[in-house]
Design a protein around this nucleic acid. Sequence first.
DNA 1: GACAGTCTACCTACCAGAAGGTAGGCTGCT
DNA 2: AGCAGCCTACCTTCTGGTAGGTAGACTGTC
Lengths: 203, 203
Amino acid sequence: MSSQNPTALNILSIARQLIMTRGYQGFSFRDISSQAGIKPASIHYHFPTKGDLGEALLIEATTEFQRQLVSIEQQHERAAQRLVAFVGIFEETFGEADRLCLVCMLAAGQDTVPAEIRARIREFWDIAVRWTEACIDKGMRAGEFYADLDSRVVAQTLLATLEGAMLTGRAYQDKQKLPESAGFILSCLRQQPEGICNSHAFE
Amino acid sequence: MSSQNPTALNILSIARQLIMTRGYQGFSFRDISSQAGIKPASIHYHFPTKGDLGEALLIEATTEFQRQLVSIEQQHERAAQRLVAFVGIFEETFGEADRLCLVCMLAAGQDTVPAEIRARIREFWDIAVRWTEACIDKGMRAGEFYADLDSRVVAQTLLATLEGAMLTGRAYQDKQKLPESAGFILSCLRQQPEGICNSHAFE
DNA sequence: GACAGTCTACCTACCAGAAGGTAGGCTGCT
DNA sequence: AGCAGCCTACCTTCTGGTAGGTAGACTGTC
């Protein structure tokens, strides 16, 4: 499982795109091979099983995600700014192609996916929700938001909305739904919920 | 495509459960046959292709959904009550087993699904969003909600949150996430967003 | 510098099983 | 007799995965 290898990285990249558009059950080693210029059997050299491939993908995604969260904390101080940047991660993923969040797609086909992958899905969301929750707590303490929000519920709601907005947005090929919906949620955290219906407008 | 037939109805029911838990790509005619006590080939008698089965399922779901919306309008007068009942439809679907919204699952595997099904997915969501939007408009006129909400955005956000809450809720096997998140969204529609973090508590 | 041995990164050939789907035959009810 | 509703048998294509082989690069020893 030499993830450093350029071919392995290429396989991971192609597999990620495929899962994001077609789901775990919707792609095959043949699909990868045709794009990677490699025979289907050769993929097993880098990733013994399909489950190993999926797991490697989730590990990669989680690591990258955590790196992005640290980067946000370094770039922005105020909680509101951090949340907007957080939403931006999902916007970026969604914006490039008609791709859904990798974790979202794997979660949809939960019952068809190896148990190790299921654990990694929860791990990813745990990180996302805990970070968001802490961010909201910080905003509440700083007086940026309403002081008596249930940060846990708000955090899980924001994440659910992001995932759901990608799902519905893709069906309509509408890239605006995600920032609009995320913007509405964020606008509810402080006094003026009206008018601000785009996450970009939420400072 | 004799949907009146008891066997056909049984096939539809089993297929619905399977898609809700495993997705469109994740179930086969063999899976259905083992549960229906019928041979795989016999399913083709009722539904010539897998696409036909999926389409019939969506037509059924959409019809049933519209029936439920009418029922809500008959039972509840106030917009807030209607929205709570609307959320209840999704709660009911989710609560029985670890089942996601049928349309949500089909939407996730969009690229692996026939074009006719894709059109039906949008149709379902169009109905859901338009109904919710009209309901919010009504609530705004009646003074139940903030008067200057963007009802289109709020409607699409509520739907996105419901779909996303099912997705994340299932991964954690937590049935509370959906009412909690829906409750938060609904609570944002009027003056007291604090404290009310369960859709049941939102009158 | 030559040789043997080993490792990497692929290949071809193959497997068993599952996929959706078709053709034609049987059975029982009207 | 005719038809609905199912069956068996079979098709092709694809599935993830395995076995064994090979070209070429690298490594250590003499």
